[in-house]
């Protein structure tokens, strides 16, 4: 039973990270109908920024929570700047081009960023400091749930709550929903659609950066390719839940995380991807729009 609970928590931890990244995919898709394949790289850049910030800040002998918070802030700000810039440079000029063009531009951006970090940093794995403190009160349950699992779960929960409030109640959040539902009408009520799109990229990138820092600290190492596989998995989670749907992305993330965790624990870690993607195939066969997605006929 302990083993089951351990797998359950580790699945939730993975799922949280997938969900944080999947939100960026789904929000961007909801607004401009683009699969932003460079989104995984934003997550990777978030982790690298956190590493750089933590390394520099470690000279000041700050307490661990301060170190964590400052590195997080650096990762979020820097990754958001990347997200904002990518949209401006790689997608905005293609706003009125055929749908395939921005998609190819996104794949190009992804490859470019991977190789840029590879050249500017290193192709090797770098050790990542444990920024998440060890809690003494969790020591008796060490076999079941670790401190970083708990922090990741709580952080994700808080972020999702803040995100829902943001989308539901703020002016920008309402503008985002309006733009996603009817772009022409959004323009006609005076919403600057370009600004809404930028805001969406910034928010999505910030969430990915949080995910990047948390998982890097949990696992303890990063390299320039971590964004690729995490990006594909999170994209799977977004599709699983119904791309364009925000609760769908969260649900999809957790389902994927749990599936992988149980597959690893009870079958073999070699099969975790097999189970994850089989699940995707099954759901797409029986619910093509994803679990919470709306079946929308392709507009002609």
């Amino acid at each position: 039973m302990d083993y089951f609970i351990e797998l359950f928590f580790s699945g939730l931890t993975r799922g949280s990270i997938y969900a944080l990244i999947a939100l960026g995919y789904t929000m961007v898709y909801g607004i401009i109908g683009l699969i932003n394949f460079a989104h995984g790289e934003i997550y990777m850049i978030g982790a690298f920024t956190a590493l750089a910030a933590a390394t520099i800040l470690s000279f000041f002998s700050l307490p661990l929570p301060a170190l964590l918070f400052l590195s997080l802030a650096a990762a979020v700000i820097w990754a958001s700047a990347y997200g904002y810039t990518i949209e401006k440079l790689a997608y905005r000029p293609l706003r009125h081009a055929p749908r395939l063009s921005p998609l190819i531009s996104a794949i190009g951006m992804s490859i470019f960023l991977q190789n840029y970090v590879l050249l500017a940093q290193t192709p090797d794995f770098l050790p990542f400091p444990a920024l998440i403190p060890e809690f003494a009160f969790l020591a008796p349950y060490a076999g079941v749930i670790g401190s970083s699992d708990l922090v990741i779960l709580l952080t994700t929960a808080v972020i999702m709550a803040l995100l829902s409030l943001f989308i539901k109640f703020t002016r920008t959040g309402k503008a985002m929903r309006a733009t996603a539902q009817d772009r022409t009408m959004a323009m006609l009520v005076g919403i600057s659609v370009n600004r809404v799109i930028s805001a969406t990229f910034v928010v999505g990138s910030a969430l990915a950066a949080v995910g990047g820092l948390l998982i890097a600290s949990h696992i303890g190492q990063i390299n320039c390719f971590i964004g690729f596989i995490a990006g594909i998995k999170a994209f799977t989670a977004a599709v699983l839940g119904g791309i364009g749907s925000i609760p769908g992305a969260v649900l999809g993330g957790f389902i994927l995380g749990l599936t992988e965790s149980f597959a690893t624990g009870y079958v073999s870690s070699d099969y975790e991807d097999v189970f994850a993607f089989s699940l995707l195939v099954l759901i797409l066969i029986f619910r093509p729009a994803g679990l919470l997605g709306k079946a929308a006929p392709e507009k002609v």
């Binding site: 002016r171 309402k174 503008a175 929903r177 539902q181 009520v189 919403i191």
Partner: peptide
């Protein structure tokens, strides 16, 4: 009409006064 279908009547009206 182009009503925002997933927003409430009140939210649609609020967006009218967006600026």
């Amino acid at each position: 009409r182009h009503i925002f279908p997933g927003l409430t009547v009140r939210e649609n009206l609020d967006l009218g006064g967006f600026l």
